[in-house]
Design a protein around this nucleic acid. Structure first.
Lengths: 345, 345
DNA sequence: CTGAAAGCGCTAACAA
DNA sequence: TTGTTAGCGCTTTCAG
């Protein structure tokens, strides 16, 4: 068993009381300069480290924050987590990461687990399946600081960090239109998610602006965000089977976007000649795919960072009632081969 | 401030003592059945959760394990971390992840930080820069359980989880040779790392088996594992400037392997026609690169899992002296276009 | 300027 | 079967 020095050990060794040691170490002003010197030097020598657990017990704080995301092995979320950890680490907070795998039940279990861990606050990106968010409302009312990021929930008044989904979707769709594609299908995540609805609206608005009639058959939902084994394959096959087969795909999350290419190739569909592709992904390799991918990229790291800064500020705030902030980041639309006009070649 | 019920609250509410509550909740046998029922029902009702911090303080355990890796945003390590978390989560342990960015100094600081967090054990993959491992030896001797994974250290007698680096490198090199390449350069991580030396030996053995003379110019080290901005570019440019330019590249880590393709393309080098490529990477997208990548893939998830299982067993073991285990996993060699013989086309 | 003592939430001797 | 008490490591009144 690994044991380290305690304040008591130092007190005994130096013939002082534990409170003197505590005060000397914390730099209290009412301790003799030489006592302070004696104590700090000894502490240094024996490599004393305060027990954070005892500190937490005293301060009623766990110094940990809970994170709820659908999965870690996802470009967007792993980058966001990077941002989260960078801030948390520097502020002395642990980060406990939980994955929902897009299941509402798992989300509940994870929240339970995080609560039992007595986290000081929550960083949440909703699961695709979640419709009942009343427990978040309750938690918030009980005083637990919560920041929603990316997949925010519109009904709860708390801090929110996300992007301008309408604009991002509008721009990506318009890029496809401007490249000569008129039959643009839209594969998206569950309509439970606000971001899906906002992105759908952006897509619809772009079609409308260019007088393209929306075809209901061109809208396909992956209710589990593409995490179910054949979810995306089924979605694509449905579109391919359409009598009036679409000539482009606009997709709205990392897993769906990067998942399309392999499936299309397997079906013998050439991208972009037979089917153009543009979608949300934060993959660093989008440029090196064959063909290179046209993507909407979110500032994931910055989003994670800001969300965590807001959360920690909220945790450490004295007054419980506060103004809730909403921050919308800008996205980046990067045009590459997968959306290149077939006519141009 | 978010507050939840304590054992004391329940005791007061029910007119019982805290120890009775504690015993009733822990299912102690010497408590009246109706008392147990009363207590558990009340606890259920008020949503009681034991404070893990108090538990930790009592048990002298933080229920957290420290992880040291070079970086999280790396296919191999993110997958290994997935495995680590899956086991840790199910065993009730926190995972605190720290990144060295291949710096020995950062590694020291991280270890300091983890120790100050009073982690119960360490999961370590050395930084490329690290040469002095005496502090690990000290920690181990003081009784802190440590499991090295992937980048293990040969000098310290403790648990080790890694792969058969010699064989993996030998097979990959031989694949290139069998595809007709004779001038195979080797770009590898710092020679500080045992895995670099073992992989180099595998590469050399394959050359020797096929009577290919080793050219010292064909061996290039990226001492920071390719994490420095121009490290890999410089390495590749050196090779390209050689009078007898190599016709193939064998690379030994995720960042180097996936980093080669963009740089070669920028230099106008066609893969595999001008330069074949085979290397270690755990990228899920290797197949969809242009050209698709020939890779050595490690069972990252399983390695993280096993390392964590061993660590937790070690933490929870009563007797401090134990047998140390060493486990070598098999790797997977997947042949794709990037190493295809130019002659065949 | 320093020490004694209480208390954070919980468990586990020890009593009853 | 239940209650009392001490103690995990630390901070913080309250005394001195």
């Amino acid at each position: 068993m690994f044991q380290s020095y305690t304040i008591k050990d130092i007190a005994k060794a130096l013939g002082l009381s534990t409170s003197t040691i505590s005060r000397a170490l914390s730099g209290s002003y009412k301790i003799g300069a030489n006592t302070v010197k004696l104590v700090t030097e000894y502490a240094e020598k024996v490599n004393y480290r305060p027990n954070p657990i005892a500190l937490s017990l005293k301060a009623h704080k766990s110094h940990s924050i809970g994170v709820v995301v659908c999965e870690v092995a996802n470009n967007y979320f792993s980058q966001a987590i990077n941002g989260i950890e960078s801030v948390a680490y520097n502020s002395g907070y642990h980060v406990i990461i939980t994955q929902t795998h897009e299941s509402a039940a798992r989300e509940q279990v994870n929240i339970e687990h995080l609560l039992s861990r007595h986290v000081d606050g929550l960083l949440v990106s909703l699961s695709a399946e979640t419709t009942d968010v009343s427990f978040y409302q309750e938690l918030k009312e009980k005083g637990l600081p919560i920041v929603f990021f990316d997949r925010i929930v519109p009904g709860i008044d708390t801090h929110k960090v996300y992007i301008d989904n309408f604009k991002a979707a509008f721009d990506a769709t318009e890029l496809l239109i401007n490249n000569g594609f008129k039959k643009i299908a839209h594969i998206t995540n569950s309509s439970n998610l606000l971001i899906s609805r906002e992105r759908l609206n952006g897509y619809l608005a772009a079609l409308e602006k260019h007088q393209i009639t929306f075809d209901q058959d061109y809208l396909v939902y992956c209710d589990h965000g593409g995490m179910l084994i054949h979810e995306l394959e089924t979605a694509i096959d449905e579109l391919l089977a359409l009598p009036n087969r679409p000539d482009a795909l606009f997709t709205t999350n990392d897993r769906i976007t990067t998942g399309c290419l392999p499936i299309l190739k397997k079906r013998g569909i050439k991208v972009p000649d037979d089917m153009a592709l543009a979608g949300f992904t934060n993959s660093d390799f989008a440029e090196w795919f064959a063909p290179s991918l046209t993507v909407v990229r979110q500032p994931a790291f910055e989003m994670g960072k800001l969300a965590t800064e807001i959360l920690i500020k909220s945790i450490e705030s004295k007054r419980p009632i506060e103004e809730y902030t909403t921050h919308q980041f800008e996205t980046e639309l990067i045009s590459r081969s997968s959306s290149a006009s077939a006519i141009a070649f």
